[in-house]
Computed example of a mutant assay.
Amino acid sequence: MDPKAGTSSGGPLSEIQLEKLQRRAAELTVPGRFLIRPLNAALEFVTNLLARLLGSSLVRRHFHLLLSGLLVFGPVLSLWVSRYSIFANRNHYLYRKFLQSTWGWTCTLTGSFILLLTFSARRSPYLSLRHLSRIGLAGLLCWGCRHLLTLLEDAAGACYEPIHQDVQNPDPTAQPLLLLHEDQTKASCLKANMMWRGYEVSQDTLLLCLCCLLLVEEMSIFGRHLAQEKQLQRSPSVPLRVLFFLCVLLLFMWMFLLLCILAYFPVWPSQQLGGALGYLGWRGLYQGWFRLTPRWGSPGLPGESLFSTRDSDKQPQF
């Protein structure tokens, strides 16, 4: 047999080349390991600290008081903030990309976190769907409140079209006369660059307050999950820690945007009424319906049926 034929068919030569490629790949991955290890350690430390903070009874019982303080005293900051700040512009990137899609960001990140946590804790599709249904019910509540508020605003308000002032009395401080349009809704009125006057409730503060309270409720069980994984001598997955960290960042962003809206665009009492409705929605869901038994159609509270009863009331230690 011709030895060249065996060499060309890839025998020992191909094995040598494969070993060289494997050694080369191992050499290239060594610097990456040195970078990944400190990042994993930092992620573990930060998520453990945030889990302990959000899981504490002080935060869970009194977080709504913090939001109430922001709603009441936030407009007072309008006396000190600058009108020339970048946050005084309604077309700012944060307002356009995040404020207008508050529920979308909350639903995506919180739903991903719940799905991954429930499946890693029990590996039960039924339990995962059951806990995910809380996000769906909260979404239906948001949708219903926004449409109901829109109908009430259209019924209680009126559209006015400014007309030119009298040329013989050019007083720039006088309020211009307005021509009433009774067949306009608020959306069509503002789209036509006319003025809408009437009673309204801030839907932005409603969504921001409800999303903040929802995030605190759903993120508070991560400490119990860490405690259970430690008892089982397992380590939570890195994607779960990353999702938890992103949800906490989203919580801080919603609180920052709420403070910016109250300070730069104060509207009393519209914003306070919106925050009150958001609080009542959270109270009705998490403090009312979700505490009932499943026969009432309740999906249960966060963490229900996921952890052992022995550790359900124990403060997480990690």
Score class of each variant (00 low, 15 high):
168 Q>G: 10
152 L>W: 08
161 E>V: 00
146 R>T: 00
141 L>Q: 10
114 I>C: 02
145 C>R: 01
100 Q>K: 06
171 D>H: 07
152 L>A: 14
99 L>E: 15
122 R>T: 10
117 L>W: 05
107 C>P: 00
114 I>D: 00
143 W>M: 12
147 H>S: 13
149 L>V: 01
145 C>K: 02
101 S>L: 12
157 G>Q: 02
117 L>M: 08
126 Y>Q: 05
106 T>G: 08
169 N>G: 01
135 I>G: 07
109 L>F: 13
137 L>F: 15
149 L>M: 06
104 G>T: 14
120 S>G: 01
152 L>I: 10
119 F>G: 01
152 L>R: 02
146 R>I: 02
171 D>L: 04
167 V>K: 12
102 T>D: 11
108 T>Q: 03
118 T>V: 11
149 L>P: 06
102 T>Q: 11
123 R>C: 05
141 L>T: 01
155 A>M: 07
120 S>T: 05
147 H>D: 14
120 S>Q: 08
115 L>N: 02
98 F>T: 10
168 Q>N: 14
152 L>D: 09
107 C>R: 14
135 I>D: 08
106 T>Y: 11
129 L>A: 12
109 L>S: 07
123 R>V: 11
102 T>W: 09
142 C>M: 12
146 R>A: 15
126 Y>G: 03
126 Y>H: 07
117 L>H: 05
139 G>L: 13
116 L>K: 05
98 F>W: 10
144 G>Q: 06
147 H>M: 11
165 Q>G: 08
144 G>L: 12
106 T>R: 02
156 A>Y: 14
153 E>T: 13
107 C>A: 13
124 S>G: 03
138 A>T: 06
147 H>A: 12
142 C>L: 10
155 A>F: 15
118 T>I: 07
171 D>R: 04
133 S>D: 10
171 D>I: 00
110 T>N: 04
125 P>L: 15
110 T>P: 02
134 R>E: 07
144 G>M: 12
164 H>R: 11
161 E>W: 06
100 Q>A: 11
